[in-house]
Write a protein that binds this DNA or RNA. Structure first.
Lengths: 117, 117
DNA sequence: CTTATAGTTAAGCATGGACTTAAGTATTAG
DNA sequence: CTAATACTTAAGTCCATGCTTAACTATAAG
């Protein structure tokens, strides 16, 4: 129990998206709401497995669902997707801006040199 | 061996980013290149563990490294980050555009009704 | 040559994740 | 009431992942 770290929501969002079945579900839901069986149909796994994937997607906030009668309808939660997107984008842009500044610096150096061999 | 699916690079990129130690490494590398020991310093795990994380990041293309003398220097590969970003963004935007069109439709309906109770 | 530095490889353990089947509950249709 | 539908829960298996320690290699410095 010592040295235990609770997984952050970012941990769990990335882990959620790492599974192809779950990405297929998210992909389907991007096209609009769907029931559990609709999500299951194109997947070659058992319904309980789909339920487990759904639980993972819900517990990290990527999907939301509500049950009406005997049908559970699922939806994407775009804010969660944005969170993932932003984490990646921030790091990528930080790196690319560094590269840009390096490029400018090198161009400036070349100019200062004035075409010296 | 039946029904085996090789993990796609997307599977492996998301899985790579799901680990907090690996995200810390990417975060550090976003600020510029670093050696293995520099990557290890802020992490409370053994060097071999860091090497293993690095192998994961390299095998999915998120990080590139090169060894000169006895020092291995690591860099972010922004294209790989963009791939992850794009996958998420596509689905999120698809969903949000659907919501927008729904909004427009409802607004139109209201106008057509002309304030009927 | 000798020691310190920087990284690497191997082996083994512990945990968690993805599936499955079997059995059960709640709704709706006939 | 009876049966079909749509999901749910439980239990157990199997494999991948993350980590550790121990031992080793290659380079650089004294």
């Amino acid at each position: 129990m010592l040295n235990y770290k609770a997984p952050t929501s970012l941990d769990r969002m990335f882990a959620a998206m790492a599974d192809p079945a779950r990405r297929a579900m998210v992909d389907r839901l991007a096209r609009g709401p769907a029931s559990v069986s609709e999500l299951a149909r194109p997947l070659s796994i058992s319904l309980p497995a789909v339920l487990q994937h759904l639980a993972v997607l819900e517990s990290c906030g990527v999907v939301r669902s509500e049950k009406v009668g005997r049908v559970r309808t699922c939806q994407i939660e775009p804010k969660a997707l944005k969170t993932i997107e932003d984490w990646i984008a921030e790091r990528r842009l930080m790196w690319e801006q560094k590269l840009d500044r390096l490029g400018e610096y090198l161009a400036q150096q070349e100019q200062d040199d004035g075409g010296t061999a």
